[in-house]
Design a protein around this nucleic acid. Sequence first.
DNA 1: AATGAATGAGAATTCATTCAT
DNA 2: TATGAATGAATTCTCATTCAT
Lengths: 217, 217, 217, 217
Amino acid sequence: MQNRISEEKLDRLLETGIKEFADKGLGNANINVIARNSGISVGTLYNYYGTQEKFFLACLRKSMSLMEEVLKEASSGDIPILQRAEKLIRAIQKYSKDHADDMKMYHEITSGTDSGYAVMFAREIEDITASTYSSFIAQAVERGEIRADIDSRYFAFMFDDLLTMLQFSYCCDYYRERLRIYCGDNVFDDDEKMVREMIKFLESAFTFERSEVRHHE
Amino acid sequence: MQNRISEEKLDRLLETGIKEFADKGLGNANINVIARNSGISVGTLYNYYGTQEKFFLACLRKSMSLMEEVLKEASSGDIPILQRAEKLIRAIQKYSKDHADDMKMYHEITSGTDSGYAVMFAREIEDITASTYSSFIAQAVERGEIRADIDSRYFAFMFDDLLTMLQFSYCCDYYRERLRIYCGDNVFDDDEKMVREMIKFLESAFTFERSEVRHHE
Amino acid sequence: MQNRISEEKLDRLLETGIKEFADKGLGNANINVIARNSGISVGTLYNYYGTQEKFFLACLRKSMSLMEEVLKEASSGDIPILQRAEKLIRAIQKYSKDHADDMKMYHEITSGTDSGYAVMFAREIEDITASTYSSFIAQAVERGEIRADIDSRYFAFMFDDLLTMLQFSYCCDYYRERLRIYCGDNVFDDDEKMVREMIKFLESAFTFERSEVRHHE
Amino acid sequence: MQNRISEEKLDRLLETGIKEFADKGLGNANINVIARNSGISVGTLYNYYGTQEKFFLACLRKSMSLMEEVLKEASSGDIPILQRAEKLIRAIQKYSKDHADDMKMYHEITSGTDSGYAVMFAREIEDITASTYSSFIAQAVERGEIRADIDSRYFAFMFDDLLTMLQFSYCCDYYRERLRIYCGDNVFDDDEKMVREMIKFLESAFTFERSEVRHHE
DNA sequence: AATGAATGAGAATTCATTCAT
DNA sequence: TATGAATGAATTCTCATTCAT
């Protein structure tokens, strides 16, 4: 009976949706509950989004745009790859803690199943990251910072693998547990250690010297 | 009205369940359809498994045990870490093609949402892998094959990250697309290239020499 | 925010309603859609008509009054019954083509279902027609134009039956098809033939001579 | 929890459906109510019929087959057309009283609107009637029983018009009222009168003698 | 007086689970 | 023990109606 739902309510709706989808999954979230929990009527939700699916996509997009922003910020500037990596890792650590639900949404879509979206979203989300990382690495190769005999696309892929798994490892129950199993129950108390070890790993990965070198010694 | 369901039918039931859960997701799979598709009555399914949830867990367990077996096989023997990695990568490539559904189930459960199970399963599944990898790496460090200033657990974690992402990248729609975006539309036609690039990455990651060494030359 | 809806808009509203009710049926028409399609707000529609039901009745009334007008025109004047019939048939043919929606509404309401209105409308609509036809026929009987041993009311009833079915046969999908089945796929291309055959039928019906009578002559 | 719904319940379901659809119309009938009123669960209704639409069609078909049977019976035998008409009229009078709801179903479908079915059903229902009547009349023409200058298809059409309207006039509220208006409030108490008057009308219609006869007078 | 966003009861449909055979 | 028809709570979505602007 109000004449326009407030920005704030509309925002709460998406937040509630994100929470619900993150908790229950696309298949088990309940539109009516989402509406009720955000203090608006189902009717209004449907007026705005038309179908459950479209509403889900709206939630997803909200999550994504936030995430993108964070990562874009962390990728900006013309800095050496390892410093960049460090910024990204820290961004993920921060973002994952503050926005676990958004991260779960990403994982939701990613786990596919109803994945008409999957492919569509992959392009939308990964495209930029992929080309950014690849060209970082290609440049680093050219500058001689990284060994020359690699395919920069594959290395970019593995670089992103590690960041992706890091996200999961901070957000999703399963991967949190896995991380604990691997690195001890205190991992979450020492983010810096994770930064250091990941940087070591990446540093090594990127700056390999063939065995001849070792033979010299 | 038969007097015991045949082993084969019981097996087909699980297979069908795995397929259904992989295709539709935990939230959208339909017990009745699964029963019908495996030529068994719902009644029997319930006699054996009690609830949908328990049936789901049985399917998951089947997927897992298969996967474990494959990976265990590939991890066996006392061989250098890179050779071991190579075996694992190839095992994943093979396994993922033959058993995409099992992999999808894993991702499904892992992506957490209904993740009462998640934590419980993490222990069950990752424990062995984690300790195996960690000790591999610890040994390699001791033998001087890998640089000494690392925490082998973290390196094991990252090592497994790459293998995990590789699995997803071969099985799940989203990650298949992502892989294509990173490495080109033909990635799936050249498994060997993937092996080579991953090994290069890992080789580098594990056998880092600090810059002083380079300066010596 | 205007200060009085124009006559023209109000008229368009009814037209749109008629179209919608004719297309979707009373049970499936959507007030909001009708309002939107006529460029008027639901609010205004409700200000003018109060409930969906009353709006429906207003649409119906509009249809009816138009139809009545057409038929009244065709019934006017003191001409022999067959000429009158001919005029009516032609009026129906013309009217049905130009105002199929109005006709459909009539059939809709008439087919009764939600027929609180039905009875009420029957009196309103059929009363005049009934008495007009009956007295035509009674007069014709008196003038010896029509055989004497009939009940003019029943003949008027059957006369109107034929005209009513003709209306349906030109407007409503089902009856259009039925007409095609009976008279061939080209019926709708030759209105004159219909006129001729109907007139023959009516002419016969009204001017019967028993066979004995004929033999006497 | 029973193991098979009894024939009787299944039949009651269709009857209840027919009643509901006849009363409320396709658009306003309520599947859940129909199920409840026939003492079965919605689930079962859906197990048997799949959708509301299919259930509606099943009800319609039941109505139709009954009606067809009645009319077929009345059309059988090689008797003169007026005797045949008499049988048909009586059959309609009887059938309409006993099965008003079935008749309303027919009217429902006929009033079109959701009329994908309309055309389909028209063929199914009218085809036989149309060709039967047409050939009756054609034969009567050949035997000299009916004037020769007519198109037997059009006469068959009008013949059926009268029977169709008779059905409506005995079953549907609106047309019942209309009939009362035309023929007086007691019409329904004197079926024989209706038979007589209709037969007179038809007899005349079919046995016309051209104007020469009249000129003799 | 006109607007149209918000509302929420109501309807169709699904599917995990039961239980008579 | 196996079966699968029956069940009905739960869920998505629609739409007549209201009322703040």
